[in-house]
Nucleic acid binder design. Sequence first.
DNA 1: ATGCATGTTACATG
DNA 2: ACATGTAACATGCA
Length: 264
Amino acid sequence: MPELAEVDYFRKQWNSGLGLRISRVTTHPWTRVYRDCDPVDLVASLAGNRLVHSETHGKQMLFRTDRSGWLGIHLGMTGSLSWTTQVDFDDGYAHLVLQTSDGWLIFEDLRQFGRVLFEVNSEPPSWWSNLPPEIMDVEFSFDYFQTLLRRRLGAQLKPMLLMQDLFPGIGNWMADEILWCARLAPSRRVRSLHLAEVRTLHQKIHWVAKRSLEIVGDDWGEFPDAWLFKHRWKDGGNCPKTGKPLKRERIGGRTTCWSPSWQQ
DNA sequence: ATGCATGTTACATG
DNA sequence: ACATGTAACATGCA
């Protein structure tokens, strides 16, 4: 489910628990989400702490504790974060639950493609400090964008936009939305782009990311009908620009939705 | 039943 | 070493 804007939405779902003492930590310790950290150590280290700060970087989330704990959560394909005050919440897929005085912070993930990272240190862990510039950052300039493309001349646009070390936070639907906005066919190779097309692509990457964050916002807002997003999910959708049928095909191993007469 | 799902990555290939 | 493509991961749903 989650790409950049949705990840930031889920991060904010845990705001209600910031500053509260964690009285109890429970995990499903055998699951795949703990492939890169020790859940026993996590439970022991986190109990008694307070989450004091949260931020996102692309699809990665970070929660810091008042005792130098760094909790990283990636939502994978089906992960979500929630806050509940109901004692009898369904914890069937809850891999991590932090109990506080006022309620429970929950990380669920049905398919377990998500992951939990944790360490205690005064310095940020390498998985947080060694991250590329974000799309919305001033560092993500047109010059920087061009240097990224120069090393990916043979790549198709769609799979390239999904590379997280280049474009943190872009996922399958955002990549399609960006290419649709830029009027570029997803199978185009980077080396075929003219300068004007590279400029448009850079602008649309920024624009789609910014608008997505605004639209999803704090309340999981609806995307406008004028977006590809509202028409892409199943066969039979029509392009909001041309009214013609959208095409769905596999490009770079992922289902890609695009509008052939609109995108070249 | 068969194929597919808004993600990442180890591995294979050139 | 680098760029690119593919399979695999776990689970439920159409």
